[in-house]
Write a protein that binds this DNA or RNA. Structure first.
Length: 428
RNA sequence: GUGGCUAUAGUGUAGCGGCUAACACUGCUCCCUGUGGAGGAGCCAACACGGGUUCGAAUCCCGUUAGCCACCCCA
């Protein structure tokens, strides 16, 4: 087999089996959106490249090397959205949502694109759902966002959820902290791994995440950002934690949690499944507060908070779990099957099929087959309860056979009464 | 972007230098132009691509591509 064409690297075809799960996830989101009064929004898949450069951040990996960007025929610089938040914010500004009553609560579900090297739970085209709440700085909002993602995952059947949370301060206190962290790291530069040496300048917060043992040791003595928060950020974080305690939502503080998008301020969080597969697949959801983003994209200064979750990651874990449980959902696709024998019957069955469809009854068929045994075989595979047999003789007499598959009992009735009869039987 | 592992019908596998490339499932046909689940008979369908080593390569080597995994980063 020499395949001439195949799907692009890291992009996959999604089949019925996948959509069974995707739809379930989406439905759970919709329920949660209804409960917390979030409105559905779907922004374009292509956006002006500049909103990611300004929003997500020029120095982030995403913008630096992972975007699918193009210049349109008209000369516009466009990018396949690598994440959802900047598009939502663009829409918020463009449609004057700042004049709506606050908070403005929006949720989305759709495909995103990043040119990364694919691996477990990481693709070049992937689906995310996200919830964004704009216009309110109160940490009660942060708590609600975390709660929503926790609830969705819980409703989907995840146990052992691990919520990690941290505060990275605002543009002010983070700057101070960054300086003191950098000077601490510089003083111990020789003890760091080669990767981290490079990171000192570019992204010192990341060193706190390094897995090298020698870096871990240095990290233990490093200044922690929670100790360097300004009063406002400190109070915000403290209040958030109190709200979470009040809700009874389990979380753990991770003073080393940082996120790779430039616009985050104050709260950041991630949710994992605490299991082997969960660790491998990475964060199921992640997000935080982004109080400067609306202003950075040209809107009025507007506090906001939101998060997103990777649908494939969630679905992969759901699939792995149902495999473990040995669940084989062999679904019955229809209750009735229509079989025919002979040219007259074949023609009459076309109309009959439509009558059933109009009556809201789904009827299986294999009209392309002529032998009755082959049709019954097909009916058996569909696991239907009843088969309607329209033979040559019946077709001429305007009659039809109704056969109950399980018992093998069958009887003849008027063709015109077929829909009614089946309707009665199915109701039972 | 860097590394490691892998690559045989639609799917899952066997083949370990000497085949007409095997098996299971699926699909299709027939046994059975008017009665299914079982059984039997048959059919369709594969060595990713390109080089090399060799009398001989699915098998060994190199390259390309793709997949998986790890790093990086992230959902």
């Amino acid at each position: 087999m020499s395949l001439k064409f195949q799907s692009p690297t890291g992009m996959h075809d999604l089949f019925q089996e996948d959509w069974n799960y995707f739809d379930k996830v989406k439905k759970t989101c919709q329920n949660m959106a209804d409960s917390y009064e979030f409105d559905r929004i779907e922004t374009p898949i292509l956006e002006d490249t500049a909103i990611f450069e300004k929003g997500t951040g020029l120095n982030t990996d995403i913008v630096e090397k992972e975007m699918y960007s193009l210049t349109s025929r008209g000369g516009d610089r466009l990018t396949l959205r690598p994440e959802g938040t900047p598009g939502i914010v663009r829409s918020y500004i463009q449609h004057g949502m700042q004049s709506l009553s606050k908070p403005v609560k929006l949720w989305y579900f759709g495909p995103f694109f990043r040119h990364e090297r694919p691996q477990a739970g990481r693709f070049r085209q992937f689906y995310q759902f996200g919830f964004e709440s704009l216009g309110v700085s109160d940490p009660i909002i942060d708590a609600e966002i975390i709660q929503i993602f926790y609830n969705i995952l819980k409703d989907l059947g995840f146990k052992n959820l691990l919520v990690e949370i941290n505060s990275i301060g605002d543009s002010q206190c983070r700057g101070y902290f960054r300086k003191s962290l950098m000077s601490y790291l510089r003083s111990r530069q020789s003890g760091l791994c080669s990767d981290c040496k490079r990171r000192i300048k570019k992204n010192p917060l990341r060193i706190l995440d390094c897995k090298e043992e020698k870096c871990q040791r240095i990290k233990k003595g490093a200044p922690q950002i929670v100790d360097h928060l300004c009063k406002e950020c400190h109070d915000h974080f403290k209040n958030l934690l109190e709200y979470l305690d009040e809700k009874g939502l389990p979380y753990s503080l991770n003073p080393y949690l940082v996120r790779g998008l430039d616009y985050y301020t104050k709260t950041v969080f991630e949710i994992y499944e605490d299991s082997e597969e969960g660790k491998q697949i990475g964060a199921l959801a992640g997000g935080g507060r982004y109080d400067d983003l609306v202003r950075m994209l040209g809107g009025k200064p507007t506090p906001a908070c939101g998060a997103a979750s990777g649908v494939e990651r969630v679905v992969n874990l759901l699939k792995a779990r149902s495999k473990k449980a040995g669940l084989k959902a062999k679904e019955r696709t229809s209750e009735v099957f229509l079989a025919q024998v002979g040219e007259i019957a074949k023609k009459k069955s076309l109309k009959l099929f439509e009558e059933f469809r109009e009556a809201g009854i789904k009827v299986g068929e294999a009209l392309h087959r002529d032998s009755l045994s082959a049709q019954l075989k097909a009916a058996d595979k569909m696991d239907v309860k009843y088969v309607l047999i329209l033979g040559q003789k019946e077709a001429i007499d305007d009659q039809i056979i109704i056969r109950e598959m399980k018992s093998g009992n069958q009887y003849v009735t008027e063709l015109s009464k077929a829909v009614q009869e089946i309707k009665k039987k199915i109701k039972k």
